[in-house]
């Protein structure tokens, strides 16, 4: 299809309470720059039920316009209803570019939408720019488990779509809302939703592991040795107000639940500080955390690959280092 406008859209995914997920707001940051270069508006798109909070958040983080669809059928994410709504919006308004957070829902919805619109989608991007030659978005993403980066263009189809990793971009500063807010009337028949949530199985009652939104993560790997071995990891996390992460080896051993796993088959994170304890730094683990601002590694083996990405590396035994570090933090914080 043809783009009707030069506008750049950011899909702002909502949480169950109607507020925005971090990544949608983060994307307004590179979105601003790309929109200015494309010479169009920066438009935030919100779909959900009772989404006033997300609409306001998008408006005060720099969007020129917020388009939103609100209805009971969008309370829970479903591929069928969300893709139908987005397809309707795209057909109606014709953006030239759309950024979608590479969350599980974003990566469920993005390819389905690209197939419906028969346009190109670039997955899980970590870099965004405008290609000087073509004026298209230059999407940069890791492949081969992070060993290789590829820059991809979608020259002939519109809109050009991409999912972008959470935690890569910083949220823009909040300011006065100046966005034009547009409610779009769109409803989707309940019987059109062909999947049904039969049961929600929360991992541990009440414990939400928000790795993607965490500022600090303390993660343990096979080096912690046992489920009990996670105690010093948890204590340091508590002292720092951090979230606990884990490598797949620790998860596979059954020492901690999968919701803590960081990496290619776990969460992709981008905290301000990532402390890897007893983690060797396999490429699949690095794929999920190398975008962290500051990386600290604690490992017995001076040759462990994790030291290759670490800003600060302690060669030592985590069972000595972690308690000492926790004590030091508690002491200084009073």
């Amino acid at each position: 299809m043809e783009a009707k406008t030069k506008d750049l859209w950011v899909f702002v995914e909502t949480k169950e309470d109607g507020s925005a997920k971090n990544v949608g707001i983060e994307l307004l940051n590179p979105g601003r720059e790309l929109a200015d270069k494309q010479g169009g508006k920066l438009v935030a798109v919100v779909i959900g039920c009772g989404v006033k909070a997300a609409v306001e958040e998008a408006a005060c983080h720099g969007a020129d316009q917020v388009l939103y669809v609100d209805g009971e059928e969008f309370r829970q994410y479903s591929t069928d209803a969300y893709v139908a709504a987005l397809d309707h919006l795209v057909e109606t308004y014709g953006p030239t570019t759309m950024l979608i957070g590479a969350t599980p829902n974003g990566r469920d919805m993005g390819p389905r939408l690209s197939s419906r619109l028969q346009t190109g989608l670039t997955a899980d991007c970590t870099g965004l720019a405008i290609d000087e030659e073509t004026g298209c978005v230059a999407w940069t993403r890791p492949a081969f488990g992070g060993n290789l980066m590829a820059t991809i263009l979608c020259t002939d189809h519109r809109p050009q779509l991409g999912t972008v990793r959470p935690g890569v971009f910083k949220k823009p500063a909040a300011g006065e809302a100046k966005a034009e807010i547009t409610k779009v009337d769109f409803s989707f028949p309940a019987e059109g939703i062909r999947t049904e949530i039969l049961e929600v199985i929360k991992e541990t009652a009440g414990e939400l592991v928000d790795l993607e939104g965490a500022d600090i993560i303390v993660a343990g790997g096979r080096g912690v040795g046992s489920a009990e071995g996670f105690a010093p990891v948890r204590e340091l996390a508590e002292a720092l107000g951090a979230t606990v992460g884990a490598s797949r080896a620790a998860v596979d051993a059954g020492w901690i639940s999968h919701s803590h796993q960081v990496g290619q088959t776990g969460k992709t994170v981008g905290p301000k500080l990532y402390i890897a304890c007893g983690i060797s730094g396999a490429i699949q683990h690095l794929a999920g955390m190398s975008a962290s601002d500051v990386i600290v590694a604690i490992n017995k083996d001076a040759d462990a690959p994790i030291f290759g990405v670490a800003d600060y590396g302690i060669v030592g035994n985590l069972f000595e280092v972690l308690p000492a570090l926790t004590a030091e933090i508690k002491k200084r914080k009073g």
């Binding site: 992070g146 980066m149 820059t151 990386i295 990405v309 600060y312 590396g313 302690i314």
Partner: peptide, 24 residues
Amino acid sequence: PTKVKKTFVPPRKEAGVVIKEETG
């Protein structure tokens, strides 16, 4: 619709600070 414009090996980070004192 998507075409690879270029590929490159990600720049390696500068070596970090290594800490290896007598005791943990």
